[in-house]
Design a protein around this nucleic acid. Structure first.
Lengths: 218, 218, 218, 218
DNA sequence: CATGAATGAGGATTCATTCAT
DNA sequence: AATGAATGAATCCTCATTCAT
């Protein structure tokens, strides 16, 4: 596999991925426009011309990010959720935590920020992001909420909107990783726990709600 | 003699504000770097050179946005909340709706998007945004949650985190106004109602409560 | 003459001259291109538009400098030399000192600097400067040298070149007034005295000296 | 296959020097401000962007001129003077001629013009020019005059000022190469000879002045 | 396959000039 | 006669992209 041990053929296969990783980091740090190809190349350990051997241009690098980096993570996340058994509440907890582990706390948290910033300039990429990530992610949340409502574990709520209410703090936790002030200091896990606490109280039927974690009195 | 009614309208007073409005719109649409000064000028109804009569450069325009546009809105919002009486739940509803009216559905919803995108490139502006907007906004939410907990109307929750959970969907609703897909189609008011429904259920004490939202008297 | 005592009619007559004075100072300090019309206006105590009431544009201001400021000084200098009696040596001393007083140590010393810097960009002005100033000045020096040679007071020298050798240090003394380093610290009068000392020794017949190169006859 | 022999010649080493040469010529012709980067690039045979590969900007090009172009010439001139034996008069003649050959009649004669024009705008460069060129040049002249006075070959003169008197015509000869009128027509060598004739007569002891070099006949 | 010198279109900024007031 | 807001051509500089090596 490495018949030709020449310096530059060493990692022929790995190059495109390395370039995308470098690009993602930089796009997230500085934005698409403010990131120079030279910087991407430098961070990927190559020189100015090399990215053009693998991508048609800066915009193509941007477009490739979603396909190449997001999809595998989504597949992984879905695999982790697959076949999980338990109450709706338990499944919701698990979803939120898996989501955070496989995306929120990885370099992929950069993508929502990038999309907020650049969706308007790259509708095509935004469509891809929407179709692959948002729709797919929402489906997972929708499923568990609907199941909870159907089984009577959850109150009857406006499912389509409730799922966005539920996702919003998770996404915000990803976005704020890139803000130099404010939210930045929050502990993500405690943030997610608080979210789940509020949401499950908000969703669950009250009467038999012995769920109350903080004060299980009564 | 006056075929061309007014080649320029000599409005020294109004110009800076017009330029900032134009800049805010464009920065939100396309991002800071992708917005050309010419475009800002054109949208403000002036030509290339005019913005430089009032601002030292593009960056100064950016910096001025927060001070000039955000502060008045915040003052207005706080005035609308001032002296409002009612239960914690009622106050929370009102805060969320006032917030949305005075910022979410105005052109100011552009600022959170801008900040997500550019905070890293303009830490100085991010600090201003944080100090003037985030800190001040959070204080309002913190106050009402704390009051609710103190009066026994709300459960004991992790206030500092709960307020972020509460804010997140409101901010997300602002951000998604600029996304071409997905969330964009949601009805903001229904979204906020759903948020309040979930949050109030999540916050309120739930004795034998048959869900009575506003005033579970009796 | 001042029937209309309105604020701005006060010095109608003086304006153009004030503007030229301001322009000369600034052109000498910073060069033609680096001097903004605003600066000229400000130093003349008027605003941006006013210079255009008196001059067609920046270049016309430049052109006017020579005519308006240099000629009077030259006339004055020639008047001071007129009818002066004495040996060639005495006349040379007087010329150099008058020259220095009426031009070297006044703001007119700016003109040689300006001409060195801008002659190439304004050949028309350079021609004017040459015809009015250089030619006229050289004529004065030529005259006294020729008279000295004719009377036998001076050696026979290459008059046409000697006059330039004689002028050069005077001009350099004017130029170096604008250099921040080096020559700047020299005392002009001592410099001129040294020049005259050397030149007169260089020009005068050496009593018993059989040195006479060109025309060893007599 | 090679219809267009070489679109660019890939001469990393030579470029900076070529650009500086082009810049020096143009700065001397038109002045710093009036010279466009495009012109410098064009004269150097490259395009707009290339100068920026080697210099941070226009000002850096200006600053580099002194260091890169002047120093080698000065070293060369000093080498040519090194170890020269002869009377003070002979040494003075030689200095003036070497000076003229290695600087006056080369493209370096542009530097004094540039400095007269721009010293005020670039004090930092002026300092460099002063320290490297003026101080060093003056030292050479000072040395020979002092030696002449010490040996009795020259009269006792105001050395510090005499050297400036001596330098001034040499510098003026450099400056006037760029004036479209007047001095321009003079023959530099005849000018220098006249200078030396006058100066040596002016410096030398008169009585026993059997100095007559050119025509020691009698 | 990789490099990096060179390109040149694009965009920020300046400032001489105009003209309604 | 004077002002100064507005203009827009001119110019510096950046950086995505190309291509000879």
């Amino acid at each position: 596999m490495d018949l030709c041990p020449k310096r530059w053929s060493r990692r022929k296969e790995a190059r495109p991925h390395e370039i995308l990783e470098a690009a993602l980091e930089l796009f997230a740090e500085k934005g698409y426009a403010a990131t120079r190809i030279d910087e991407i190349a430098a961070r990927a350990g190559v020189t100015r011309g090399t990215p053009y051997l693998y991508f048609a241009g800066k915009e193509e690098i941007f477009k490739a990010l979603i396909q190449e980096l997001l999809l595998p993570a989504l597949d992984e996340a879905e695999a982790m959720l697959d076949g999980f058994e338990g109450s709706a509440a338990e499944r919701l907890r698990r979803i939120v935590h898996v989501w955070w582990q496989s995306m929120g706390e990885t370099r992929l948290s950069a993508l929502p920020k990038l999309m907020v910033a650049e969706a308007g300039n790259f509708p095509e990429v935004a469509k891809l992001y929407n179709d692959l990530f948002i729709v797919r992610g929402e489906a997972i949340f929708r499923q568990v909420i609907e199941a909870g409502v159907a089984s009577g574990e959850f109150r009857t709520v406006d499912v389509e909107y409730a799922l966005h209410v539920l996702c919003a703090p998770v996404v915000m936790a990803m976005l704020t990783r890139y803000m130099p002030y404010g939210h930045a200091a929050l502990d993500p896990l405690r943030y997610l726990d608080c979210l789940l606490d509020l949401m499950l109280h908000g969703l669950q039927q009250c009467p038999q709600s012995a769920e109350s974690k903080e004060k299980p009195d009564a």
